[in-house]
Simulated scan of single mutants.
Amino acid sequence: EFILEDGKYITEREVEKMSKSKYNVVNPDDIAEEYGADCLRLYEMFLGPLEQSKPWNTQGLSGVYGFLKKFYNLYFDGDTFSVSDEEPTKAELKVLHTLIKKFTFDIQNFSFNTSVSQFMIAVNELQKMKCNKRAILEPLAVIISPYAPHICEELWEKLGKNTSIEFEKLPELNEAYLVEDEINYPVSFNGKMKFTLALAADLDAKQIEEIAMSNEKVQEILAGATPKKIIIVPKKIINIVF
Rank of each mutant, 00 (worst) to 15 (best):
A37C: 03
E166W: 07
G7S: 07
R134Q: 13
Q118N: 08
V116P: 00
T58E: 15
I136D: 05
G60I: 08
S115R: 01
G66H: 15
E138Q: 14
N184K: 11
G36L: 06
E209P: 05
L222A: 06
T98R: 12
D30L: 14
K217E: 15
A91S: 14
V15P: 08
D204G: 08
L61N: 00
R41F: 03
L222N: 02
L61D: 00
Y43Q: 06
S164C: 04
H150E: 03
A122I: 02
G78W: 08
R134A: 09
A141H: 04
N113M: 01
C131F: 09
T98A: 04
A37G: 10
L40N: 00
D202Y: 02
A212K: 00
F119P: 01
K236L: 12
Q59S: 15
I165A: 05
K192I: 04
L42Q: 08
H97K: 07
L4V: 15
K101Y: 01
E138D: 11
P28F: 03
V123G: 04
A91E: 15
E34H: 14
I211R: 12
S111Q: 12
A205F: 07
E87Q: 12
K128F: 05
N174T: 00
L178K: 00
L96K: 03
G78F: 02
L197S: 07
Y147W: 01
T226H: 11
N113C: 06
S188K: 02
T226C: 10
E125Q: 15
E216L: 03
A201Q: 04
C131W: 09
V142K: 15
V83M: 03
A32S: 14
G63E: 09
T104Y: 02
A37P: 07
S117L: 03
A205Y: 02
S145P: 06
G48Q: 09
D79K: 13
A122L: 07
S188Y: 05
E16H: 15
C131D: 07
Y147H: 09
M45G: 03
D204W: 09
K236F: 09
D106F: 03
A212Y: 09
E182V: 11
I136M: 06
